[in-house]
Design a protein around this nucleic acid. Sequence first.
RNA 1: GGGGUCGUAGCUCAACUUGGUUAGAGUAUCGGACUGUCGAUCCGAGGGUUGCGGGUUCGAGUCCCGUCGGCCCCGCCA
Length: 598
Amino acid sequence: MKLKRTHTCGEIAVTDAGTEVVLSGWVENKRDHGGMLFVDLKDRYGITQVVFDPQRNEALYAEGKELKPESVISIRGVVQRRPEGNVNPDRKTGEIEIIAEEVEVLNRSATPPFEIVDDCGASEEVRMKYRYLDLRRDVMRENIIFRHRVYQSMRRYLSEEGFIEVETPTLIKSTPEGARDYLVPSRKFSGRFFALPQSPQIFKQLLMIAGFDRYFQIARCYRDEDIRADRQPEFTQLDIEMTFVDEDDVIAMNEGQVRFLMKDLLGIEVGTPFKRLAFDEALKKYGLDAPDIRFGMTLVDVSDVCADAGFKVFQAVVASGGIVAGINAKGASNYSRRQLDELTAYVGEYGAKGLVWFKVEEEGGTNVLKSPTAKFFDEGRQQKIIEKTKAEAGDLLLFVADGPDVARTAVGRLRVRLARQLDLIPKNTFELCWVTEFPMFEVDEESGRLAARHHPFTSPTPATVDDLEKKPLRVRARAYDLVVNGVEIAGGSIRINTPELQRRVFKALGIGEKEAGEKFGFLIEALKYGAPPHGGIAYGFDRFVAILRGIDRIRDVIAFPKTTTAQCLLSGAPSPVDEKQLEELKLKIIRERDSSER
RNA sequence: GGGGUCGUAGCUCAACUUGGUUAGAGUAUCGGACUGUCGAUCCGAGGGUUGCGGGUUCGAGUCCCGUCGGCCCCGCCA
């Protein structure tokens, strides 16, 4: 490296005209006019145009002609104000250019597999394989730099609020509940394994017991479950825990933080306090526990109207404890048969067995329901449905009859899908709300046992704690989720801080004294020694960054993400390992017969 | 575990309904022309085991089965 850079490619201005500079960067683009050659030189900070003029220096012009896109070079030259009429107003450095005097090619680039431009058109597969090139694109670089700003804002805010950043271990004890663990074999103890943490949960509680009072960590977490657009096998949490607090304290602190972050990162003022919705209310009105409250179209329950109407399908569902839930898609009565079939297929994905629709039409001065199903509803019932759904002529009513969970989920999803289709969602707004009063437990379909809805360290509410033994499904948790535009971005709870209550909750979960001792003995033990009341929250950091940037996939805000099969296309991980490594760990790979024949 | 969708030139796609001669285009690359461009422009050239394996057929990019991979979704994700 002969030439040492004096400036970056984004900072030279007209006031620098006449000075000699050295720039280093990548060849973004080359425009050769025969008698004049322009090279755009790019680095993280910007793009500067370099001019090669054969009349000034023919040999240098010849060198410039040989420059390949994406090569790294250094240029020595003199800053010049661009001739009149040649200013590029779209570029920060568009008023100046560099007259090249010397070029040093630091590393000539092979032809890249795709063009390094925002609209590169390359598939995600190719982009992930060549992620270092993908990250050279402006959008991706800005995503990553924005992410950096989010880290810094969080750290600044929390530090000023008295929170201490502490790292917790990533080689930890595997616990039975929750997601599947990623396991790491121990060499010193063959046959034993560490797990990678699904969250720093227990350790942050131990920090509270240790008296740190206020803790945070930007922590990597690992869950070996199937991937989605908003889920990665390893992801980042902003993890927070506080002592001597109740729900309102944690909520207030986080409202302050989110308000600060929105202002600091986006310049947006959000009002506090945020709306609060009880879990039951969220389900009834929106069908989902992460409601998108940017628009209305709330769910309507017409079970009572359908209970004794002539429509057998609905009757049977209501008779067996199900419900008939629906929504009013305003002005959508022009939906075609094909569109309705698509919506039916869509609710089918969430387990609904069908979708009943009515088009609302005016007939002789009154509104009536039109559809193949309408004949099963007499005039009185039709009017009740119209009344309940606040329907007007031109509306489309859609209903799902099923068990309460399936019906609400299906209609809740349908609501969001229709809102997108009908363009009901306001752009560039953030609607934040807290969902509270979650049930402590839910029935695990596979085992039929109770499972913690949040996690087994969540405290029940005082009002429902005594239902733990007899009516556990009625017990409510001191838990809260923060939902932004229908996306859950944070969740937390007030924790259990006595061994007695912790044992009762474990028992309700079917975790016996002995098992609890083996798996969580260290926590129960710790709760004996002056464990203070405490609670906290964890943000899905990647999701939070993504939603602030207005994108719905977290891969684009992660520098090196994994695919939906949890592989790294760049490095090829996971990969087989040497036999010697397995021997050291005393591990043997059992090959399935089928796969060995491949 | 299940459903959907895609896989053809370096990259993004086309080759249809209904299997049929030499698999096309844009872009990138290479060569040439050009004194002010900024996604420069113009002319020309090269570039293919149609992901992989098997089957059906006189004949397969196209149909069937399997498999690998990308993406989306259900289940799962305390």
